[in-house]
Amino acid sequence: MDRLKIERVGGFAGFGGPHLKSRGEVTLSDLSPADQQTMEQLFADPGKIPAAHPGQADAFTYKITRGARTIEVPEHAVPAAVRNSVKDVLE
């Protein structure tokens, strides 16, 4: 299970409406060793996923799926390479 599927949700009042989806995929082995370790830690202990920063009600959250498991992570805790894999698509 080396593939991560990413969906970005939230943001400024749900900007984009119901037809704009923000999704991406990345292969875990394509990430830097530090980013791989970060993702492994997030999946290993979801209870230790940091909370969103106070006062950032409009911040994005990332739903990251690996195999059958999905975790939700605030934007500030997601490695840049994973965030950058997400593209906006009209459906």
Rank of each mutant, 00 (worst) to 15 (best):
residue 82 V to F: 02
residue 91 E to D: 13
residue 4 L to V: 09
residue 31 L to A: 01
residue 35 D to W: 05
residue 75 E to F: 03
residue 20 L to R: 11
residue 44 A to Y: 03
residue 78 V to E: 04
residue 34 A to E: 15
residue 63 K to F: 07
residue 9 V to P: 01
residue 16 G to T: 11
residue 67 G to M: 07
residue 81 A to L: 04
residue 20 L to N: 07
residue 62 Y to Q: 02
residue 89 V to K: 09
residue 17 G to A: 10
residue 13 A to R: 15
residue 27 T to H: 03
residue 42 L to P: 03
residue 73 V to A: 05
residue 40 E to F: 07
residue 19 H to K: 11
residue 52 A to V: 10
residue 38 T to L: 12
residue 55 G to M: 03
residue 9 V to K: 13
residue 49 I to T: 09
residue 90 L to D: 07
residue 1 M to I: 08
residue 60 F to G: 01
residue 68 A to F: 10
residue 91 E to Q: 13
residue 69 R to V: 13
residue 4 L to M: 11
residue 74 P to A: 08
residue 59 A to I: 01
residue 87 K to M: 11
residue 56 Q to A: 11
residue 80 A to G: 03
residue 51 A to V: 08
residue 91 E to P: 00
residue 83 R to V: 05
residue 85 S to Q: 09
residue 36 Q to K: 07
residue 44 A to K: 14
residue 79 P to W: 08
residue 88 D to T: 11
residue 46 P to Q: 07
residue 57 A to P: 00
residue 9 V to G: 01
residue 32 S to I: 04
residue 79 P to H: 06
residue 81 A to V: 04
residue 86 V to H: 03
residue 83 R to K: 14
residue 14 G to M: 07
residue 45 D to G: 02
residue 15 F to G: 02
residue 24 G to T: 05
residue 35 D to V: 04
residue 39 M to H: 06
residue 60 F to L: 10
residue 27 T to A: 03
residue 61 T to S: 11
residue 8 R to H: 00
residue 72 E to P: 00
residue 3 R to Y: 00
residue 30 D to I: 00
residue 82 V to T: 04
residue 35 D to C: 02
residue 12 F to D: 15
residue 67 G to E: 02
residue 10 G to S: 14
residue 50 P to V: 10
